[in-house]
Amino acid sequence: MSHILDPLPLDNTNDEICCCYVNSTSQIQVARITNVHNWYFERVVFPGQRLIFEAPRYSYLEIHTGLMASSILSDKIPCHQLIVVGEDEPHPFAIPAIDLDRQYAHQ
């Protein structure tokens, strides 16, 4: 997956993982990764939107909810818990992409 605007620093390329976060709330959220040296990652995630991104395995995704003037840090998720893998790649923390579709289709 290419990072057009903000590529990962070169020292992290061997430990990057593909992750997925879904905003299951009715509010706009801001997703940030702040614990990676020399890298800035921040995205707006609309209600029901799925955010697919690559990040170092050790990073944390911070979820900020609310208005920009008064947003609160509502969650801090280790990125290794957001790993997306194919059906032939089992991982103890991973949710297969096909299961994500089933899970959110019922909501």
Rank of each mutant, 00 (worst) to 15 (best):
M1P: 15
S2L: 09
S2D: 13
S2N: 13
I4N: 10
I4D: 12
L5K: 14
D6P: 00
P7T: 11
L8P: 09
L8Y: 07
L10Q: 13
D11M: 10
N12A: 11
N12H: 10
T13N: 13
N14H: 11
N14Q: 14
N14T: 09
D15F: 06
D15R: 12
E16V: 07
E16K: 14
E16Y: 09
E16I: 07
C18A: 13
C20I: 11
Y21M: 03
Y21D: 05
V22N: 04
V22R: 06
S24Y: 04
S26L: 07
Q29L: 04
V30Q: 00
V30L: 01
V30K: 01
V30G: 02
A31N: 05
A31W: 02
R32W: 03
T34R: 15
N35S: 01
V36P: 07
V36I: 15
H37K: 14
N38M: 07
N38S: 12
W39M: 11
F41S: 05
F41R: 03
F41L: 06
E42C: 09
E42H: 04
R43Y: 00
R43G: 01
R43H: 08
R43K: 12
V44T: 11
P47E: 04
Q49S: 08
Q49E: 15
Q49A: 14
L51Q: 00
I52W: 06
I52C: 12
F53C: 07
E54W: 06
P56C: 05
P56E: 02
P56K: 06
Y58N: 15
Y60R: 10
Y60Q: 14
L61D: 06
L61I: 04
H64S: 00
T65W: 03
G66D: 02
L67F: 02
L67H: 02
M68Q: 08
M68N: 07
S70E: 03
I72S: 01
I72L: 03
I72V: 10
L73D: 08
L73K: 15
S74R: 02
D75R: 06
K76M: 09
I77H: 04
I77C: 06
P78I: 03
C79M: 05
C79I: 05
C79H: 05
H80T: 07
H80I: 09
Q81D: 15
I83W: 04
V85F: 02
V85H: 10
G86K: 08
E87I: 03
D88M: 08
D88I: 03
D88L: 06
E89K: 12
P90G: 08
P90A: 09
H91N: 15
H91I: 01
P92I: 01
P92V: 04
F93V: 00
F93D: 15
F93Q: 10
A94E: 07
P96C: 09
P96S: 10
P96Q: 12
A97M: 11
A97P: 02
D99W: 04
L100D: 08
D101V: 06
D101P: 00
R102C: 14
Q103S: 13
Q103M: 13
Y104H: 14
Y104T: 12
H106E: 14
H106A: 13
Q107F: 05
Q107P: 08
Q107M: 12
